[in-house]
């Protein structure tokens, strides 16, 4: 197969348009919630450090 990406896609039988939709939504919303969680955890950690130093 000349196109390795196409070979993987065919092997995974990703020919349904909903597969692309679900993949796109998972990546975008997953990244969004991941960033929110990272910011929330880091902010709480820095605030705890500030509180400890008072």
């Amino acid at each position: 197969m000349a196109d390795p990406v196409l070979a993987v896609l065919q092997a995974a039988q990703i020919d349904n348009p909903w597969s692309w939709v679900i993949a796109g939504y998972t990546i975008v919303y997953g990244a969004m919630f991941g960033l929110t969680a990272w910011l929330w955890m880091r902010l709480n950690r820095v605030r705890r450090q500030l509180d400890d130093e008072i």
Binding site: M32, T36, W40, L43, V46, R47, L50
Partner: peptide, 23 residues
């Protein structure tokens, strides 16, 4: 709305880190 929430959190984090650095 998500942008406003993320930006306000990131801004608060930058300010908290700067306060920590100054201390």
């Amino acid at each position: 709305i998500v942008y406003i929430g993320l930006t306000s959190r990131r801004r608060a984090l930058l300010e908290a880190e700067e306060s920590l650095r100054l201390r």
